[in-house]
């Protein structure tokens, strides 16, 4: 028996590490990896709450798990497009450092 709050706290820990990595990392690929980490943390929270909803309502509820399914689909599409953008940026500017990709900065 594990309290569901433990799963939620684990999700919070992973999300916070993802936020910190997103802010600290300077390589554009690692920034993208930390976005994936945050998505995974939220997925764990969805599955934990789906389980809790099944307990409360008394029979199986799968809507939370289906939300995770859709998050996975969108994450796969996002990874394909994002990595293509990274390749295009690298071809144009020959760098992966986010500090030197500042064309839109005032």
């Amino acid at each position: 028996m594990v309290p569901i709050a433990c799963y939620l706290v684990l999700g919070a820990i992973l999300f916070s590490i993802g936020v910190a990595a997103f802010l600290i990392k300077r390589n554009i690929i690692t920034v993208f990896l930390s976005i994936e980490l945050m998505l995974n943390a939220v997925n764990l929270t969805f599955v934990a709450f789906s389980r809790r909803w099944s307990q409360v309502s008394g029979h199986l509820q799968v809507n939370g798990q289906l939300f995770v399914f859709f998050v996975m689909v969108v994450a796969a599409a996002e990874a394909a497009v994002g990595l293509a953008i990274i390749i295009a940026v690298f071809r144009a500017r020959n760098t992966l450092n986010v500090d030197s990709i500042d064309l839109m900065k005032l």
Binding site: M1, V2, P3, I4, A5, Y7, L8, V9, A12, I13, F15, S16, A48, R51, R52, Q55, V56
Partner: peptide
């Protein structure tokens, strides 16, 4: 992290056991 952990642990009895 502190805020989320505080909220989850504060209300942990209402989340039940898996």
């Amino acid at each position: 992290l502190g805020l989320l952990t505080f909220i989850f642990l504060n209300r942990r009895s209402s989340f039940g056991q898996a």
